Computed example of a mutant assay.
Amino acid sequence: MTDADEVDHDGLQALARRLRLGTSASELHGSLTGYLAGGGAVDGNAVLGVLELDGEAIDPTAQDLALLDRLARQSQASLADAELGFEPLLPADDRPLHERAEAVVEWCRGFLGGFGLAGAAVQASLSGEAQEVLRDLGTIAGSSFDFGNESEDEDALIEVHEFVRMAAMLLFAECGAREGTGGNTVH
């Protein structure tokens, strides 16, 4: 997949609005990532169904389904990247700090929901480290931020972002190592 083919935050946000999904691009990507990290597999035609997202009577077009397919392939490939290239799909760094911080919270909420959809059996057999990572993601998902010193706040958000990025890859690696014990595979 070339960079030109990659789904970006703005493109996914436009899709979520167009389909009236009632979720943000960050939460949608978090849900998909959590589902994949939990051992689920999906192609673009089934993303909305697997994640239990229904638009308000707006059927996705062929172009919408193609975008979801690219997003699913992009997410799967980046989680499996040996170079640790996974990145949560979040607003660009030039967006206001409060918007980016809220997007991280939404991404984590989505991740936890998607991970839960992949299968409870996986969660029960996670290592202690992975269970702690899930708890930490839950803490982030339930957070609200107080902003004070912009430089310190920016540094803190960078640290949280890096934790979230690594947490997703750790959970994907652990659950992927349990061939066949993850969630349902949808093709």
Rank of each mutant, 00 (worst) to 15 (best):
T61W: 00
A130L: 09
D94N: 13
R73P: 00
F172C: 02
H9N: 13
M169H: 08
G34R: 10
E162F: 14
G39L: 01
L48T: 03
G30S: 03
G183C: 13
A82Q: 13
E179C: 01
F147V: 01
A57W: 05
R178Q: 13
W107Y: 14
T23F: 05
E106W: 09
H98E: 15
A66W: 00
G183Q: 10
G128D: 15
G38W: 01
E159R: 05
V42E: 09
P91D: 10
A57D: 15
G182V: 07
E102A: 15
G55R: 03
D153H: 11
E102N: 11
G34M: 06
S125H: 12
I140A: 04
I140H: 04
D54I: 05
G38T: 03
T2K: 10
E129I: 01
M169K: 07
G39D: 02
I158E: 14
V186Y: 12
G142Y: 08
L126K: 09
G138S: 08
S24C: 08
P60Y: 11
E52Q: 15
E56K: 10
G182F: 05
L84K: 05
R73L: 12
S151C: 00
L79D: 06
N184E: 12
V186R: 12
T61V: 00
G142K: 05
V7E: 09
E179G: 14
D69G: 12
A16C: 09
A120P: 03
N149F: 10
E152F: 06
A130E: 04
F163I: 11
L171Y: 08
D5V: 06
Q74R: 04
S26K: 05
F86V: 02
R17E: 14
E174F: 05
H161G: 03
I58W: 07
V164P: 12
H98D: 15
T2G: 12
G34S: 10
R20M: 13
L84E: 06
T185R: 10
I158V: 14
M1A: 13
E83N: 13
G183K: 11
H29E: 02
F111E: 08
T139D: 14
L134Q: 14
E154H: 02
E152M: 09
A118G: 09
L68R: 06
A25R: 08
C108R: 09
T61K: 01
L171I: 13
R73N: 14
R20A: 15
R178Y: 10
S31K: 14
V50I: 10
A62W: 03
E102G: 02
A57E: 14
G176Y: 06
L19G: 04
E159W: 02
E159N: 07
A37W: 08
L15S: 01
V50D: 07
A16I: 01
R20T: 13
L126R: 05
F86T: 02
G128R: 14
R73H: 11
D69H: 13
L15N: 04
E102R: 12
L134G: 10
A82C: 03
L90F: 05
A168E: 12
A82Y: 10
V122Y: 00
A37F: 03
A4Q: 08
D43R: 06
A37V: 06
A141G: 00
A66L: 07
Q13K: 11
L65P: 03
A120Y: 12
A80I: 05
L65D: 04
A103Y: 01
E162P: 05
E154C: 00
L48W: 09
Q131L: 07
L137W: 13
V50L: 07
Q123G: 15
D54N: 11
V104F: 00
